[in-house]
């Protein structure tokens, strides 16, 4: 048996990628009061946007990543305008169902344009290095690093900037925020843009780490959902912690249950959290 530390590290990398969509999913849920399942599809969209840039115009992967961030954010905004904004006052359940519909449409647009086949970026795979008995991939380290920086930026934005405070205020009570003069629709647009961007960027990471196919993002939704619930809806650090825990449990869980039950681990976490501590780790009210 390899040291458990290797599994934990593997889980940290998985969790790092998971954290970006989990934070986006969690914040948007709090802000707009419904779980937006289309967020997982933004990963797929981001991965394909970067693919087009990387293969089509031969952009470096760094540039393609930035492009994916911007384009996916813009797409998320467009989707919000077309699909969710007209439904702003509907019940969360209706909006959640609408988001599943949006995810379905986006996924099929991707299939229609790029086909069902998987793709890969024009980036060589590198051998991992050995650090203190741990096998650590360079790409994974880089992905983890960028994910952590993005999380820190998101958190700094939310805590330190006026707009960030306004976003949290809008999430708390949109009517009161409006009474105080906060332009809530613009705050929502900004959050959608940022959330879509984070998810799109994570999609590129996922494509680099594994491969790109139309179902890549949709397949993650259970893990993203579990991370957001575990962290407490609306808490960015909570979602980060939730993502890391889900990632680690999925990997370390292999020591206890067969690998074919990986997805079941996410479900189990969701169930356990809902039963034991519905407010999640951060304990924010929803």
């Amino acid at each position: 048996m390899p040291p458990i530390a290797q599994y934990v590290f593997n889980g940290v990398v998985t969790g790092g990628i998971l954290a970006l969509p989990a934070v986006a999913f969690s914040l948007l849920w709090r802000l707009l009061r419904f779980p937006n399942f289309a967020v997982s599809t933004y990963l797929t969209v981001g991965a394909y946007v970067a693919l087009v840039l990387n293969h089509g115009v031969r952009a470096s992967i760094e540039l393609a990543w930035l492009g994916a961030l911007v384009v996916t954010g813009a797409l998320a905004l467009l989707v919000d305008r077309i699909a969710f904004r007209p439904m702003r006052d509907r019940r969360p359940f209706s909006l959640a169902i609408a988001s599943i519909g949006v995810a379905f449409v986006l996924e099929n647009v991707v299939r229609f344009v790029w086909g069902n086949d998987f793709r890969s970026y024009d980036v060589p795979v590198t051998r991992g290095m050995s650090v203190a008995g741990l096998r650590i991939g360079r790409d994974q380290l880089l992905i983890l690093g960028v994910a952590v920086v993005l999380m820190a930026l998101a958190q700094a934005f939310l805590l330190r900037t006026r707009l960030g405070i306004a976003m949290r205020a809008t999430a708390d009570n949109p009517r009161l925020a409006a009474v105080k003069g906060v332009p809530t629709e613009r705050v929502i647009a900004l959050a959608t843009l940022g959330g879509g961007g984070l998810a799109g960027g994570a999609g590129v990471f996922l494509g680099l780490d594994a491969s790109i196919d139309p179902l890549m993002g949709g397949g993650l939704i259970i893990s993203v959902f579990a991370a957001a619930i575990l962290g407490g809806i609306g808490s960015a650090p909570g979602a980060l912690a939730g993502a890391l825990i889900v990632g680690i449990m999925e990997e370390v869980g292999m020591l206890v249950v067969p690998p074919t039950y990986k997805t079941a681990i996410g479900f189990t976490i969701i169930l356990a959290v809902l039963l034991v501590r519905p407010t999640g780790l951060a304990g924010a009210r929803s």
Partner: peptide, 11 residues
């Protein structure tokens, strides 16, 4: 035996 559609098979 491993599961399909997983983002990584590191572990």
């Amino acid at each position: 035996i491993y599961e399909d559609k997983k983002p990584s098979y590191r572990s």
